[in-house]
Every structure is written in structure tokens, then in C-alpha cells.
Design a protein around this nucleic acid. Sequence first.
DNA 1: CACACAAATTGACATGGATCATGGAAAAGC
DNA 2: GCTTTTCCATGATCCATGTCAATTTGTGTG
Lengths: 249, 249
Amino acid sequence: MIQATNVTPLFNDLAKIEHDRNVACHACSLYSLCLPLGLNNNDLIRLDSIIERSQNYKRGYALFTSDQPFKSLFVVRSGSFKTTISATDGRDQVTGFYFPGEFIALDAIHQQNYQSNAKALESSSVCELPFQNMEEIGKGMPQLQIQMLTRLSKELAGDKTFMLLLGKKTADEKLATFLLSLSKRFQDRGFSATNFQLSMSRSDIANHLGLAVETVSRLFSRFQEEGLISIAGKALSVQDIEKLKQLCG
Amino acid sequence: MIQATNVTPLFNDLAKIEHDRNVACHACSLYSLCLPLGLNNNDLIRLDSIIERSQNYKRGYALFTSDQPFKSLFVVRSGSFKTTISATDGRDQVTGFYFPGEFIALDAIHQQNYQSNAKALESSSVCELPFQNMEEIGKGMPQLQIQMLTRLSKELAGDKTFMLLLGKKTADEKLATFLLSLSKRFQDRGFSATNFQLSMSRSDIANHLGLAVETVSRLFSRFQEEGLISIAGKALSVQDIEKLKQLCG
DNA sequence: CACACAAATTGACATGGATCATGGAAAAGC
DNA sequence: GCTTTTCCATGATCCATGTCAATTTGTGTG
């Protein structure tokens, strides 16, 4: 189980940390980052009752694909995921990476099918929220409704910011921005902001940022030469976070 | 007042069409595209009572900017708007164009401030939905809550699709995709899918698509030479919609 | 109407990052 | 533990699109 607030493993691997399938929301270490925040006790218990806690998804396994009917929202419980959308000709775009406490499939609400594909980047688990049930219990829970709206709105804001990255930033700025975003998210989860494992491949990063793999690889090397970071395989250590921030534009 | 379902002006200018500030939702021609869809009569009346219908915003006027406190959501009533976000160094990104029936400011819900800037592209008007009031009346209106979630989710899906455009598409594909998106939206509003006015400048288009103005200008010229479109100033006519679709990738 | 200013077009040229190619290092499969 | 496959790093080259510059067209204003 993630006890994010107590331990700060330096080179954390979110997947390796044991977690208990049966921990209820009120006892979950992700509570403060997660959906139930702000719900009263009764509401929390009802919400809890509709949540299905998944088994492990191994690295590379699909949580859902865009040809499947939309049924549930998911919250990452441990590990991490990527989502992608595909053009008709096979090109695809990594639309996001998702860490514990973050929602997946918000873009599919009230569509027939999921709008994207979600894959585990490492051994991971999720809480599954069957949407039908959520609607049902949500009718009497304004706080839950507001939480949902807030979540959606924040993801939307993040995506707009990401448009600026894709449309206007240089390769350097893109990578710096991306690394800082990871750093921030690890920190929010009680991990080191400066030492962590990249669970995604170089090619996932490149794809997400609208770059070629080779460019990302070269940038990692250069950032290292310049003393901004030090990187060995998937282990990243941020050496000069201030310079990195300046680089974001 | 827009009577979109009855008239199909060829070169429509959404702003020039007269509209009555006092038309209630149930009598509004945008009804089927707009928020109230699916509400029962009582609920509709309550929703109606909190909506503030704006005066005209002239071309270039700001609906809000990102330094202002978030207060209301907006639905375009007539005309059109663009939204932008700014990097610290002054660069900015056009994050979207908004036409009648479409929501603006969904990315600001439960943030302190608006997250972007919204400007009128032509003489335009909006319906203003004070968010406090919406939350209030929403508590007893599950249908309204669902409508809101659906709206947010659809915008999210659109943004993810747009990421693929920004990250993976060539200049040709970007412009073709953009033109078809406009075409579709005009059609949905009862206008011609093939003949319409571009209310935004070339530079807004370029910025939105992550291109230089010159590139957009050249593409318009080339698309015209190739018989895909014919364009004179802001008046666009789609000549070969099928070829355009093939170009989207 | 004429002026001033902003927007759009078009051409010439430059370049950031893509693509291609190769070799080595992990990781996965058996 | 060996083999196969995928991933990553780095160099050489190329090209789609950006940048700069000059001109034309459109637009708003007194």
C-alpha cells in the first residue's frame, strides 16, 4: 500500500510498492489527492461501495481501447498508465501519462465508446468507477458532482496548457517542461521531486511532446552535459531545478 | 434572432444575424445544441432565471482575461470568440474558437481565476451563467449535472484530438482538418457546410494550428490552385470536400 | 475620401528538428 | 543462459516549415 506521506523513497517505482486491494477510501493514502476529498462520511461509504478495485495490470496491458464500449472511469491506484489516440492511418499521439490519484477516461463520459487507449507502463492497479452507478449515487451527492466537474475542468486546463507546449515551445522547452511536470507530480504524492524513475520509454516521451525519439535522446544527453540533470536508463535525478524552470519559457 | 433551422444563408456572418436579448431558452433557436437539452419544463424555467443575456461584444473586446476572478461560464449566443493562453514570455496560443451554443471557460471551474483570455472575433453576444447559481440550482437537477459533465467531457475529447493534430500532422493536414471542423460546425448550426465566412484572421488560424502566418497563407493559395477550396478574403467556399477529407490523415 | 495602419500574399533563404543509418545495451522470451 | 527483440545513443544528412523582406490588399477613422 502506498503510504505516500510517510515514506520518501528516492528512486521510487510506484509499481513496486505493495498495495492492498481492500483498503477503503477513507484509509487510502491517496485520499487527499483523490475523488472522495470533501465527501462526508455517509457519502464516502456509498461511493466506496460502488468502487471495484482491480487486480494488477502488467506492463503493456491495456486498461481499455477505443473500440470498447464506455463503462467505467478509472483512478490510478498504483503504477502508471499512458493514454493514446490514433489517426486513421495508424499514427498515434500519447495524450497523457497518469499517476496514482489521477483519473483516466474522463473524455469518454456519455460517448458510446472510450475515446482513447490506456496502457499500463509498469505493474499497476486502478479503482474502477462504473459510471452508471456514479450517476445514480451522484444524484443525492452535490459534493461528488462538484468534485467531478472540478476534476474534468482541471484536466481541461492542463490540456490547454499542453497545447501551448505543442504549438509554441522548442524541443528544449518541451522536455524541460515535461520533466518539471513529472517532478511536481511525484512531489505531490510524497516522493522526491528530484530523484525518480521514468516509467515511460523515450519514445513515449518523444511522441507525447511532438518530437522524434532521437531528439529526446540527444536532449537528455545535452541536459546531462550541462549539469541540469543526471540520467541513467530510467533513473532521473534533477541537478539544477532552477535552470530547468528557466528553460520552460 | 438566429433561426438556424429555417434559413441557410450562404455566406453567413453569425454576428450580423439579429438576435433578441430576451428570448428564453425554450424559444431559442440554439436549444437543440445548447445546455438545456433534456431538461424538463420546470428545470428549464429555473435555469432560465439565472441566465444573464449580454449586450453586444464588439470585435476585439475581451469577454474575460486570465487575471480576472472566475465568476461565470458563458455560452456563445451569436458571433464567435477565440480563447488564448499566454506563456510567461509573452508567446501565446489560441486554444480554441467558439461558435453559438458552445461553452467558454469550462477550464476555469473552481479555480480562482479564469485560465485563459476570451475575445470576440466579430460582434457577438453570450449567455452568462453565474457558476454559484448553477451549483445551487444544480443540486436538485441531475439532468443539468449530466449535461455539464457531458459538455466538459466532449471538450476534453476534442482537445485530445487536437493534440494529435498539433503533435503529428503536417501543415497540409492541419489546415484541412481545421477547415473541415469549421464546416461541420456551421452545418450543425444550420448553415452551409461549404460556404462560410472565416471570422478569425489568418494569424489566429496559424497560431491555433502551430504554424506561421505565411504558411497558412501559402496553403490557402495552394489549396485554391488545386481546386480544393476557393477563398477571397474571409469568404471561403469548399469545392472538393472529399479530397479535403482525404487530406486530413 | 484619403490617410494610416493592420492583414495578407509572395519570394528568397535559413534552420530546428526529422530522418536515415549504425552500434551497443537492456529487456523479454524460451 | 542464450537468443531475439526492443530500446537507446550518436553521427550524417535532409527537408518542411520558419524567418526575413518587400508588396499588395483590406480596414477603420477623422
